[in-house]
Design a binder for these strands. Structure first.
Lengths: 299, 299
DNA sequence: TAAAAATACTCCATAGGTATTTTAT
DNA sequence: ATAAAATACCTATGGAGTATTTTTA
């Protein structure tokens, strides 16, 4: 049973004639006849009574006709829906963001995305990097915003922002008046850092390693704001990405001058995944938004 | 978009792999890949993300999957229904019968039909011959029971009963003691006959013509019972088919001996019409029923 | 290296075409 | 005689096969 057979069957039922059905279907009459015969053969029963002058559905044909029409109609609908959807800016985009980026980076991007793609449903989840990568693999998020680089070339990464690191120093601290610092300048200071699992901790550890610095960690937290208020209370120093600067005004932020004392943020997708228009729109927006923002953030 | 493409598509979605889908579909992997590619081409979008290790539906694929399943399922249901119905003894049979046969012939046939085909719905309409033939052509009745012969070879007729004609004579009439009569014996008698339009009138007229008899018609009615009660009241004579004999006991019934003074009843269908099992069952029953009945009726 | 999908080609089954016959009007 | 469907036969598209390459894990 093939689709063209059903189409021919419906055409014959509609026109009451093999010849007219063939004409309507743009095939030769014998071709159409053959296909109807074949269909009848497969079903083991006649679908039409050939009455010389005209052709009429048998009872069996009458039972098949509405079903055949249903099948053909639903096929067209399915096709139509797919073709319509593929170009639509609708659909859903699920974005995963690491916690040390989320509060600084997301608000403007989300705002302009929902403005530019009002039909799309945007979902954001905040997770640490390994969980985001796992969810990319599992397909439960479409895009991840996180610190690069990452391992595993099943992913495709688009870096769009490299930001310097800043030392957060108590206002009264001796180093507070410097315009730039080297990490080694802080080798005697007590450090307040993010808890393990947050990738920015790894960024920091890597930078310290490069500076042959073994920081004396006296406090750990899950968010910058806690660290910074303790720095303000003269408990020690911390290192934060540019994004977190001015989170707390009770301390000074001084640029770290070390080579590679930076953090790179990027968008990551699973390699080979096809991206809907909404997905691509989100990615484009992320890059555009950031390049527009960078001068401001860097000022 | 072809059915096998949808089948392959569902198979890949089910198995999460082109190779396994190909195995399950009993085709080679490249063949299946080609068809999926072709389907994606036609739709203008990817249905699967090829992730090297595994294959996963895209959002578009996810929208297509349930629709593809629906189409395939409904196709199977349609096929199943047709194949089931074609061998079933169910369905409806609409039978048309001429008025001069209906009351005598139908009751036993209907009884045994409904007994033998309880699932079938039997409908009976009573009409005169030309209307029955028209309805056969229009397909509003499946079988007609009427007097043969009929004109028009768009019909197929199965004669199953040839019955002699009887003269209905008042009991006190001079001819009432004869065992057999010739039509010419009645040439002086006043005739009571069926109204024009009833085919038995034509049967009678034809028989009279053959006997060179021009009957003096003094009364016409639409049914034998009226004629016979008037015969019983000594108003004249009538000619009836064997079926109507003993309809009224106030007159004598004497066999007409003339050659061809008979009426033949047959079943008629539109030539070329396919007959369901119920139709064929009805026709078989009609013949069988009658051959069983004839000795009784003829006794 | 292994496993899976894509590519390159070959083949043949069959949908579709043309010519003709059959059938019914 | 005409019109419609069936039949016979031919053609060629394209679905499916085998062999191979590419890609990714």
């Amino acid at each position: 049973m093939e689709l063209h057979q059903l189409r021919y069957f419906c055409a014959v039922a509609d026109t009451g004639s093999f010849s007219r059905a063939a004409e309507q279907s743009h095939v030769a009459q014998p071709s159409l006849s053959q296909q109807i015969l074949k269909l009848e053969d497969e079903l083991g029963a006649r679908l039409f009574d050939r009455l010389g002058r005209s052709v009429r559905l048998t009872d069996l044909g009458k039972t098949l006709l509405p079903r055949a029409r249903t099948v053909l109609r639903e096929l067209e609908e399915a096709k139509g829906e797919v073709i319509e959807r593929k170009d639509s800016a609708g659909g859903s985009v699920t974005v995963g963001v690491i916690p040390t980026v989320a509060p600084y980076f997301l608000p403007p991007v989300l705002a302009s995305f929902t403005k530019k793609f009002p039909q799309a449903r945007l979902t954001v989840v905040e997770e640490i990097t390994p969980i985001l990568l796992e969810r990319l693999r599992a397909g439960t998020i479409d895009v991840a915003i996180l610190a690069l680089p990452i391992r595993g070339h099943e992913f495709e990464a688009w870096p769009f922002l490299t930001e310097p690191l800043f030392a957060a120093i108590p206002k009264r601290h001796a180093l507070a008046k410097r315009r730039v610092l080297a990490l080694r300048d802080l080798r005697k200071e007590p450090f307040l850092v993010l808890r393990d699992g947050h990738c920015f901790r790894d960024t920091l550890v890597a930078a310290c390693d490069r500076a042959r610095l073994k920081p004396k960690i006296i406090f750990e937290s899950g968010q910058f704001s806690s660290l910074l208020s303790l720095v303000g209370a003269d408990m020690g120093v911390s290192i934060v990405p540019e994004m977190a600067v001015k989170e707390n005004t009770s301390c000074r932020y001084i640029r770290i001058g070390d080579e590679e004392a930076t953090r790179t943020i990027g968008a990551v997708v699973l390699r080979g995944r096809s991206l809907s228009r909404a997905h691509r729109g989100f990615l484009a927006l992320v890059r555009q938004e950031e390049s527009g923002r960078r001068p401001t953030a860097a000022a």
